[in-house]
Design a protein around this nucleic acid. Structure first.
Lengths: 221, 221
DNA sequence: GTCTATAGTGGGATAGAC
DNA sequence: GTCTATCCCACTATAGAC
């Protein structure tokens, strides 16, 4: 993928990514033209297309950086042992890290939503970022005080990642100042999730969960 | 909005929608140009833009038609009284109606995902289609044998609509032949939802649901 | 009020010379 | 690897025919 034959090529490539990130930050996705990116990077339009198949591919670089920042910010969540605290920490740290990009997050999101796009969170190209993100959830579960049936525990990181995607979706659509409503959602959701998972041990609920896990597993295969 | 002064205008307008739908069907969204739509409809490019502000507005017409077809196809679901049967009927009838469009559904979906786009299912412009779709869920609940606390019953149509959106999301990403996996999801999900709602009457679960409804209501306000 | 013809802008993407 | 020149198309604008 990112194997650049010469050092100079790698430098040119990095310069284009830098330029794109700068312009995306200040002007959003749609308003940032490939011409402006090439100009900012000091290369021709053709060169920009030599390194990147299109504007979309430049967004992947943006995502990767956001993911790294989220992972770093989530670190403090693992200081506590209560599952709810850890989960809330991971989810809130995303909101903190992503806040500066909220205004044009939707523009990125639009491209990510295309199933055929490599930018989709479910695409093979996104697998590394997806797994890194799922790992944040796995760590929230594994070091915590949460007691849960092994079968559910195994699926939990993936399910929590899906929940995280749902929160991100809500965040994208949230136009309240400082994304206040998404923060309220997380604050309300986390205790509910925590209690729901613990309720799993009730006999009547347990049967339901087992069947649910069966559906999940059958859809994977 | 769609008030056309003369019969001729209405005919021209309908012709353009028809042409767009035909071309979307055969070639997808991106590949269909406004020029081709105008040609197919036998009008000038300027005329196409006279009636529709752009390509996106043509998609809205497509959605509206799909919604109408779904409503018609869902009618048979209401013959039965068991809630699970009614819900499954509504959900499966969507899959039946939408199947011919699956291949380029994702391209539409990309535009719909932009929060600022009128095509978004949450936009004010989509309110009529959204409410019509929610009504299908309301009818699945209201004529059924389902016994559930009034507070939850009131929110149920909106919550089921959200679930439907989730299924549509899955459907968009589903590349199995005939969307077999989405059909399996619906078949697995419906009994789970049915049982979950009934479990709501358990004292321990009830407290959880009440709190969940509290979160939902606080997010609306 | 409905529609055409035409001309132009901007920007994503590509071809081919160097 | 890099550039220039070009294509294509969404979209706008406008003058005027009917």
């Amino acid at each position: 993928m990112a194997e650049n034959r010469t050092a100079k090529a790698a430098q040119t490539r990095a310069g284009i990514v830098d330029a794109a990130l700068t312009l995306f930050r200040s002007g959003g996705y749609d308003a940032t033209t490939m011409r402006a990116i090439a100009d900012e990077a000091g290369v021709s339009l053709g060169s920009a297309y030599y390194y990147f198949s299109g504007k979309e591919e430049l967004v992947q670089a943006f995502y990767d950086q956001l993911q790294l920042e989220h992972a770093a910010a989530a670190e403090t969540a693992y200081d506590r042992s209560a599952f709810a605290d850890r989960l809330r920490g991971v989810m809130e740290s995303f909101l903190d890290v992503a806040e500066p990009f909220h205004d044009f997050g939707g523009q990125f999101f639009r491209n990510a939503a295309d199933p055929r796009s490599p930018l989709s969170p479910f695409s093979p190209e996104s697998a590394p970022a997806r797994e890194a993100s799922t790992d944040l959830m796995r760590r929230a579960v594994e070091g915590s005080d949460l007691k849960v049936a092994p079968a559910l525990r195994q699926e939990l990181p993936d399910l929590l990642w899906l929940l995280h995607m749902g929160v991100v979706l809500f965040w994208v659509y949230d136009d309240s100042p400082g994304q206040r409503r998404t923060r309220a959602l997380v604050a309300g959701l986390v205790p509910l999730v925590d209690r729901s998972i613990r309720l799993t041990r009730l006999p009547l609920v347990r049967g339901l969960v087992d069947d649910g896990l069966g559906v999940v597993r059958s859809l994977r295969g």
